[in-house]
Structure formats: structure tokens, C-alpha cells
Design a protein around this nucleic acid. Structure first.
Ligand SMILES: [Zn+2]
Ligand SMILES: [Zn+2]
Ligand SMILES: [Zn+2]
Ligand SMILES: [Zn+2]
Lengths: 151, 151
DNA sequence: AGGATTCTGAGATTAATTTTAAATAAAGAG
DNA sequence: CTCTTTATTTAAAATTAATCTCAGAATCCT
């Protein structure tokens, strides 16, 4: 769990550069997010988790913290069309957003970290003159587990 | 404007197959959507447009109609992370969702109708055993117009 | 006509998110 | 170490998109 602290210190300096502080509440929020980075938590879900460690925090603060982290490009805000935004840490070395596989049978969300879109972005640039800086890609379908069960 | 009527008749029979009716309110909603198919209207925006033609319609009906059309696969529901769902007609011959280019300078949304992801889906199938049935792809970046102005 | 079914508008309701206002904590200057 | 400023917090209120309720209207079937 060494690198988690490193990551938090990292985020702290990003906040400082923007004239913001890493308060205990924000630290708890970021830490909880780091410990659950593959879960795509909603603000409320994150809130209940954070509360277990840092009881002195309100839901609005979690929302505000997430908004700040989003503005700074530290977290991603994803919408799986289930009625609320979900949050996801952007890996520091990744320029691009990772992709998601959303199983319509069991609801599981799987991550794809390979950037599969470089060719496609090249094509978009050539055909439309559009300069891509980021992307959102969600595949809907049936995951390996559910396919296996089906048979 | 010939083909629009054809399309509406088309949709009417799809509704009938599902035991539903194309009421005047639904007709007005569909028609307005057809006339603004490239605009990615929200439910409220669509409602105010529909109201100009068919004054006897409520917001709930527009929401209900959009939900039905979505269930039948006639419209797409897209989330551009601006706080509400936007709706989009699915072209009858397209199995897959089309893609969008979202300019972060002027906010314009451009459509890409080529399916650029066939190879990528193949890779997802091979690597993860995930069977893709549909996808959502949004490119964020700067459109050709805004790039030109910048210089 | 009469009865079942589907639809509708208006307003009430829900749930996610944002804002407000007053209190608190931290940072900087002298 | 005070005074001052600025950033942050909480809890409650407000906002907003979306859904639900329900009594009345339209449509369909016989
Ligand atoms: Zn599954
Ligand atoms: Zn993710
Ligand atoms: Zn579109
Ligand atoms: Zn632009």
C-alpha cells in the first residue's frame, strides 16, 4: 500500500497548484477512491464508504471533491445510464480514458486498458478534421461468464 | 419531406406490432424528432418544439413516448454528461449506434455514421470473451471549425 | 350502447446534484 | 503570536431531470 500514499501526495500537489487544499475530508475521499478504483462507485456509494473512516464528512463534500478531482482530470465521470454518475481514477500515465465492457445480463463492468482507438482517431482526424483529445467507449454485450452459463 | 411520412408509417406499424397506438401526441413527437434528427434534443427541448405544433400535449407524454421508442430500438438515448439524456433517431438500416464527435470549444456535436469499431469488437471478443451487441463511442476534442479559427 | 383497454395531462413525487448561509479551519502578513 | 483573508465545511434548502399517480378521454371489441 506504499504507492497509494505516493499517489495521494501526488494529488495533493496537483490540488496545491490549483490553489486548493487537501483537507482531511478530501484526503479520506481520495483514499477511499484509491482503495476501490475498479468499482466505479457512485457519489453516494463512495460517501457511505468514506463515512466508515472519516465520520465527520457530509455528502455535499463528497460531491464537491469529486467535482474538483474531475475538473483537474484526476477522476473520470462515467455514465452507465443507470441514473447517476460513477467515478473512476484516471491512471497517471494514461493519456486516454480506458474503456468499459458492460454486461447486460449480470450488470458487471469490466475495464479494458489497452487503447484500441489509435487507428480510429487517425481516421477521424483525416476524414473530419477533428482533433481528438479523449474518448468514451462503452461496449454493451454479454460477458464471458454469462456466455458460459448460457450453454 | 416524402420519406418522413414513410418513416412515420414505418414506426406506426412497429408500434402496432407491440400492441401500441400512434396517437396524435405520439405522432407529433415522432414527427418533431424526425425533423430535428441531427440535433440531439433533450426531452424538455423536444417538448417545447412539439408544443408549437400540437398544443395538447404534456411533458409526461413526451417522456413516455421517448421511453417506448427507446424500448423498441427506434431512438437512442445518449448521455453527453450535461445533466440530461438526449435523443437521437436510429437509422433503420444501422445495426449499431453511430458515433459522436463532441467539440469542447463550441459544444457542437457531429455524427459519424461509419462503423469504425468492427476490428476493435473482434479484439474484445478474442481477448475477453465478451460478445459485443452494441457500443457507445464519443470522441472529445476540437472540431475542424474551431481548429481553423484558432490559427 | 357497454365494457375492456390504452392513453393522456396536470400535478405530485422521487432521487441526484447543487446551492446557500453560517460556522470552522487554515494560511499569510505584520 | 494576533489580525485578516481565503478556502472549506456542514446541514438544510433548492433545483432539476425523470417518473409516477390517477381521474378523465379516446379507442377498440362485441
Ligand atoms: Zn455477465
Ligand atoms: Zn473504469
Ligand atoms: Zn447522433
Ligand atoms: Zn468546435
Amino acid at each position: 500500500m506504499e504507492f497509494l500514499e505516493t499517489r495521494i501526495t501526488d494529488i495533493e500537489s496537483q490540488l496545491h497548484q490549483a490553489g486548493l487544499k487537501l483537507t482531511p475530508q478530501r484526503r479520506a475521499t481520495v483514499s477511499t477512491l484509491l482503495h476501490n478504483c475498479e468499482k466505479h462507485l457512485s457519489a453516494e456509494e463512495l460517501f457511505t464508504l468514506v463515512r466508515k473512516k472519516e465520520t465527520d464528512i457530509g455528502l455535499a463534500t463528497v460531491y464537491r471533491t469529486l467535482e474538483i478531482l474531475f475538473e483537474l482530470g484526476i477522476v473520470n465521470k462515467i455514465n452507465f445510464e443507470d441514473g447517476m454518475s460513477r467515478y473512476d481514477l484516471r491512471l497517471s500515465d494514461q493519456g486516454h480514458f480506458h474503456h468499459h465492457l458492460l454486461c447486460k445480463v449480470c450488470g458487471k463492468v469490466q475495464e479494458v486498458h489497452e487503447d484500441l482507438l489509435l487507428d480510429v482517431e487517425e481516421e477521424v482526424k483525416n476524414k473530419f478534421g477533428f482533433e481528438v483529445t479523449d474518448h468514451r467507449l462503452i461496449f454493451h454485450g454479454i460477458c464471458a461468464d454469462c456466455l458460459a452459463k448460457k450453454k
